[in-house]
Amino acid sequence: MAVTVTPATFTLVYFDAAAIAAVAAGVAERLGVTADLVIEVDEASPLPRVWTTPGDPIAIRVESGAFEDTRRPRHQSDEAVARSVGRALLRLLDRFTGFAAAPDDADLTLAQAAAWDTYVIGRLHRRGWPQHEQRWRYNFRNRHGFTDAADAAFDRLWAADNLTWDQLVTISDQALAARAA
C-alpha cells in the first residue's frame, strides 16, 4: 500500500508531505485499507473540509485546515492528520458495509452527518486515536437538541461498532423527535 501526497513541498503552510504520508499509511493499515492513497492538500484554503473518492487508489482531497494544529496556525498536527484521514477512510469503508443506502456526503442532512461523525469518531477513539468526546457530543447536541434523549442517542452511536445506515438514521430520528416534542 502506497501513499502519495501532493504538493510534495508546501509554500503557504509549514506541512511535511512525508510526515503526512507516514501518518496516513499508519492509519490506513490499522483500519485494514489495502488500496493505495492519493492525498491532495489545498494549502491555499484554511478550511477543514475533506472529500473522498473511492477506488484504487483512494483519492482524498483536503483543505489545509483539516491537517492544521489549531494552537499553531499553518503548522501541521499529526493528530489532525490521523483524525481527518481516519474519519474519511472509515466513512468510505462504511459505505461498503451496511451504508450502501446512505446518500452522497453532499446530500446528508446536518443531523445525519453529525450522527455518522459520532459513529465514526467513537470507533477511531477505541482503535487508538484518542478523541475529545465532549467536542463531538456538543456537535451532536447542536444538530439533535440539548436533551436527555439526544445524549442517550449520542452514547449509543459513540459506543456502536456494526451499525447499518438504517439503524443510524433511526437513532438520529428518535433524538430529533424528542427535540420537537
Binding site: 503557504l12 491555499a44 484554503s45 484554511p46 489545509s64 499553518r74
Partner: peptide, 15 residues
C-alpha cells in the same frame, strides 16, 4: 502581524 502574514487568510472569505 502573524495573523496578517497568513497568506491563506483572505483567500476563502465566503468560501
Amino acid at each position: 502581524r502573524d495573523r496578517m502574514a497568513d497568506p491563506r487568510a483572505s483567500r476563502n472569505l465566503n468560501a
